[in-house]
Each structure stands twice: as structure tokens, then as C-alpha cells.
Design a protein around this nucleic acid. Structure first.
Length: 259
DNA sequence: GGTCCGTGTCCATCTAGCCG
DNA sequence: CGGCTAGATGGACACGGACC
């Protein structure tokens, strides 16, 4: 059992995670645990860029990148880079995310609200969790979309293959899922929606527009598109998918349009 | 008191990406 | 293209606690 599994077990065993206990466990491994807590809290609140974390925490920038490197080596956080970057280790577009879902939840809801919890105001915290949890679920749907796609490929439902999957962003534009195959110069673009409304053709059109901003393999590349939706698709979108061969997924299931 | 180690800060330097 | 900024990295150093 590795160190962080041990921490998790410890927290789960106690039922109600206590800051001091987690701190005690972390002290064995890290420098100044409180600083890591502050950094992880900032990330869990949506501060993903290094500059945002520096602003939020007020820490020295050399210190923050050092701490993030340690968190990365412990596989608590991960530095994510647009999948199309040529030299990933030199990219400066990286954003920092909390890789571990348990830690993400804990810092966002428990650590953040520790004073409320200590006053036993459980309901207030529960309301916050209820309100914000769908956002976390949506993020995780994006994270597993590549796995869903890969499974459909392995099952022979989609006659394509890709070497790597990832996200892509540039300025304000963002694409949830991109798969690349550099041998065949094929690229797939995906939009992932965890929403209660069926996904319509406007989402697809917007994805096609954003795809043009991705420079990878621009000369003669073959483009494919896929959509992931919690609540299915509009009639309009389904017709368009048949016509333009868009791969549709309802939650984790591939929808075959060719019968 | 002297030494060692871990930690945090400051500084210099390098470089990718951005903007004019 | 050149200049600027943001991010990464590593060295020097000061501080404080632990230990002898």
C-alpha cells in the first residue's frame, strides 16, 4: 500500500476526516504540509494556472512551482498540457489539476469548509456539495471520455485508432477531447456535455469551428468528430450525425446510427 | 557553542510564446 | 523580426531546530 492510499484509508476509517490527522500523516512525507494544503485548496477551487495559484495563495512563484513538482511526483496533482504540443515537457500552456478525485473532493468541500464543519453546520456544507458536485461530475465525464472512445474502438464499433488522447486549449478556446494518429494523420475532435438537455447541432457546429483553430497536421489531415452527452441528442443533431458521420455517445454507450 | 539539515527567499538565467 | 512576459530551474544564503 502506498503512502496516499494509507492516508485515504485512515480518513475513511475515521469517518469524519480531521485536518490535524491528515496533516500529521502528510508531515511524514512533505516539507511544510500547511503550504501544500493551501495550494491544493486553490487548485480545487478552480485556480489551475501557475499565475492563478500564485495570486490565490500569495506564495513566491519559485516556491509554488517547487511544491507543485513535489505534488506531481507524488501523483496528487498532474500538469496537463494541450495534447497537440510538440515538446510537452517544454510547453508553458500547462495547467495544474488534482489528479486524485478523493483529494479533489476533500479539499474543495471538507478542507474549505472546515470551520463550518467544526461548528457542526453540516447542512450548509451539504447544500454547497449538492450545488457544486455536478460540476465535478462533469469534469470527470470529460476525463473518462477518452476511455469510452477507446473501448468503442476495441469493440470494433469505430473503425479508427488513435495514439494519444487529451484536451486542447488556446486562449479562450477549449476542446474537451482530441485523439491523434500521427501515422495516418487522423484527428478526432470531441465535445463532452454533462447536461440535462439533449445536445443539439449548435454544439457540433461550434466544435467544427473550434477544430479549425487546431494547427496539428493541418495539411491533408483527416478529421473526425464525436459528441458525448448525458441526456442524448436532438432529432436535428441525429440527422446531421448520420449525414456527416459524427460518432455519438450517450453517457458511456456508443450510438450506432447505421443499422 | 558548533555542526548539520531542512526550509524558504532571493536572485540570475534560460526560453517558449505573445504581441506589435 | 525583436522585445517583453511568464514560467522553470538552480545556486547562494539566511534562519531555526535538532543533535552532539
Amino acid at each position: 500500500m502506498n503512502f496516499f492510499d494509507a492516508v485515504k484509508n485512515e480518513i475513511l476509517k475515521k469517518g469524519q476526516p480531521l485536518y490535524e490527522e491528515v496533516e500529521f500523516l502528510l508531515r511524514e512525507e512533505l516539507r511544510e504540509p500547511r503550504n501544500y494544503f493551501v495550494i491544493l485548496e486553490a487548485i480545487s477551487l478552480g485556480k489551475h494556472k501557475l499565475s492563478e495559484i500564485i495570486n490565490e495563495t500569495g506564495f513566491e512563484k519559485s516556491m509554488v512551482s517547487r511544491y507543485l513538482a513535489i505534488l506531481d511526483s507524488l501523483q496528487i496533482t498532474k500538469k496537463e498540457i494541450p495534447v497537440t504540443e510538440k515538446v510537452p515537457e517544454k510547453s508553458r500552456k500547462g495547467i495544474y489539476i488534482i489528479e486524485d478525485n478523493f483529494f479533489n473532493f476533500w479539499f474543495r468541500f471538507v478542507f474549505r469548509n472546515r470551520s463550518l464543519l467544526e461548528e457542526n453546520k453540516i447542512n450548509e456544507v451539504a447544500v454547497k456539495i449538492k450545488k457544486e458536485l455536478p460540476l465535478l461530475v462533469a469534469k470527470n465525464y470529460e476525463r473518462i471520455a477518452a476511455e469510452i472512445m477507446e473501448r468503442a474502438i476495441l469493440d470494433g464499433e469505430i473503425p479508427l485508432s488513435f495514439e494519444i488522447y487529451g484536451r486542447w486549449w488556446e486562449r479562450i478556446e477549449e476542446i474537451d477531447l482530441i485523439g491523434l494518429n500521427s501515422n495516418t494523420n487522423e484527428i478526432i475532435f470531441g465535445e463532452v456535455k454533462w447536461s440535462n438537455k439533449p445536445v443539439g447541432a449548435n454544439i457540433y457546429r461550434n466544435l467544427k469551428r473550434k477544430a479549425q483553430k487546431v494547427k496539428w497536421g493541418k495539411k491533408g489531415r483527416k478529421e473526425y468528430f464525436c459528441l458525448f452527452s448525458k441526456s442524448g441528442f436532438t432529432e436535428d443533431m441525429i440527422r446531421m450525425a448520420e449525414k456527416e458521420k459524427v460518432y455519438l455517445f450517450h453517457k458511456d454507450k456508443f450510438i450506432s446510427l447505421i443499422i
